[in-house]
Write a protein that binds this DNA or RNA. Structure first.
Lengths: 207, 207
DNA sequence: GCGGCAGTCAAACGAGCGTTTGAATATAGG
DNA sequence: CCTATATTCAAACGCTCGTTTGACTGCCGC
């Protein structure tokens, strides 16, 4: 195991760069030659370490998705432990980890765009992968929401959570027309997004 | 002008097939060879009629986007003419044409997925194109909303409209986990989506 | 020291890409 | 009918793609 120039292993550097470039140009649009050049790694390294471009894409997903799931479930557990927790608390546990992942030092906003893209690709293979790795988390949150919104039947609750997920996905990818002003830090802009999403979603869920 | 086998011109057939395949595989993922083969048209026809793949993509957008803009502005004008129109009415004018376009006989759900993909591609060129052809529509709606929500300052209104746009975009692409039951017609499922989005958004905007 | 192994590398493979070309063919006007 | 214009077509262009190959390098255990 030779240590890589920047202190990260070849494999890690490929994953990081791939995440960025897939987010920027799409899975088909970003070539392995671009990835390996940006990572200062030999072209053959991808096939050596991951087997294929396809597998590399899956690895990019798995790495971040596992992290997001961990954070969301931990936040939900903390919130649910408090007997007086509110709808806003559960929304926070759902929304905050997703938006905060987009400002961690390493990945930047790259991964959440990759995630949004995966939805857009509408590829059944990827959707199945996401639902397999994601389904139980959504179900846990749905149960927590159901306890706080007993007046909603299951069907109605799922409709509304779908809308929350949509607004969150959109915000995660930073699609919106709201542009961060120069004098507002990234952290504070993100916090504003979180607060707006929570308030809006709580009103919609309760209506 | 030779008439094409199916009654549609070569140009129209390319546009229709391109829309479908771009939605399914992405702009980079769908090749001109796939498009021309599916359209039963010679490979060179794309470059003859559109100049380049890039221009073909723009045409796919322009065609549907012009239609959507027309419908939205017409609906807004109708609504705004009534002196007692409500927030729900304006939301309907914004949301309904978008979701209805995804069930027109010809295009099916293809274009809305193309649109969602364009957002995901996060390509500045496409974003600029969309904002150029779309900006004035959004501004008109923002003004209509501002009249009905005088308690919100401009900044706050834009934050909330951003959330509405996010939820709508997500719904347009039919990403959600809410799956249409076998016994519900496509039309009635769409109507349910519209009603849920309006109710949720109205509550969020008023909160 | 030396064999084995994990990793890196330059080079090449065949395939598919968007685009161009020039000839063939259909349509329309005088 | 004949010419001009518009369209279609098969073939080829140069290029980039993902993947494979085989030689080369550093390193650890024996």
């Amino acid at each position: 195991m030779r240590s890589a120039p920047s202190g990260f292993s070849t494999k890690e550097r490929i994953l990081g760069v791939a995440e960025t470039l897939f987010a920027r140009h799409g899975f088909a649009g970003a070539s392995l030659r671009q990835v390996t050049a940006a990572a200062k790694v030999n072209l053959a390294a991808v096939n050596y370490h991951f087997g294929s471009k396809e597998s590399l894409i899956e690895e990019v997903f798995r790495r971040r998705l596992d992290e997001l799931n961990r954070h969301r479930l931990a936040a939900l557990a903390t919130v649910a432990a408090r007997p007086d927790h509110t709808l806003e608390d559960v929304l926070d546990a759902f929304i905050r980890p997703a938006l905060e992942q987009s400002m961690d030092s390493a990945g930047g906003t790259a991964f959440v765009r990759v995630l949004a893209r995966a939805f857009a690709e509408h590829d059944e293979r990827l959707r199945k992968f996401l639902s397999d790795n994601y389904g139980h988390v959504l179900r846990e949150f749905a149960a927590a929401f159901a306890r706080l919104l007993p007046q909603l039947d299951k069907q109605e609750l799922y409709w509304r959570l779908d809308i929350v997920a949509g607004a969150l996905t959109y915000a995660m990818a930073d699609f919106g027309m709201i542009k961060r002003k120069g004098d507002v830090s990234e952290r504070s802009h993100r916090e504003q997004t979180i607060q707006h999403l929570i308030r809006f979603s709580a009103a919609g869920l309760r209506s």
